[in-house]
Amino acid sequence: MAKTPGGTNREGPRVSRRGLLQGSVASGAAALGNFAGGAAQAQADAQATGSTTPTVSFSINGKTQTATLDARTTLLDYLREDLDLTGTKVGCNHAQCGACTVLIDGARVNSCLTLMATLEGSEVTTIEGISDEGELHPMQQAFIDNDGFQCGYCTPGQIMSAIGCVREGHAGSAPEIREYMSGNLCRCGAYKGIVAAVEQARDQVEEAG
C-alpha cells in the first residue's frame, strides 16, 4: 500500500477509461504543428469526474504499473517513498535545483513538480533505469572519468539531465552545455567535470538515440 500519498483505501470516483484514452490521443497529438486539440475533441465530451484518489497506469524503467494514489502525490515522492527508488534525489521540492530530474517519455523534467495523476500512459526513466545489467550508461561512466561530482547528491539528476541535454541537441559546445545544464545546481562545484563528461559521452548518447 502506498506510504506517501494518502496511503488509505479511500477510493473516489474513478476517471473513466474512455476519458483517459481520449486524453492520450490529445497527448499524442501534442507534437509541433499538429492541432488535434480543442476542436477535434469538442464532440467527445465525456466528462471525467474529479477524484482525490485517481487511478493511473504508467511505466517506470520499463515496468508497467497501475496505482490508486492521493491526487497530490508527486512523481518524486512516489519514486522515493513508495517504490524505494531513492536514486532520484530531493533538493528543494520546487523545481529550483534539478536534483530530482528524470526522463518522462524521453524528456527531462523535474519530478518534484510532476503529479502522478498526470502520468497516464507515460514512460518514466530514472537513474536506476539507464544502466544495463551492471554495465554503466556512457554518461555514467563519463561522470566517473571526469570527476563530474563530489558529494554525489545532485549526480543522478545531472546525469538524467545530461542525457536529455544531448538528446535535445544542446551539447554542441562547452558554452552550450553550460547553459543547457544550468537547471541542475551542483553546490560542490563540479561543473567543469560535468561539462567534460557531457562532451565525452555526447557521441555515444547521440548514436544510441
Binding site: 476519458g19 475533441q41 482525490t52
Partner: peptide
C-alpha cells in the same frame, strides 16, 4: 498541499465547463 480532486476532461470546451 491541500487535498484536491484531479479531473481530466476530454476537451478544452469540456474543461471550462468543469472548472
Amino acid at each position: 498541499m491541500k487535498s484536491f480532486a484531479y479531473q481530466k476532461p476530454a476537451s478544452a470546451q469540456a474543461a471550462v465547463g468543469m472548472v
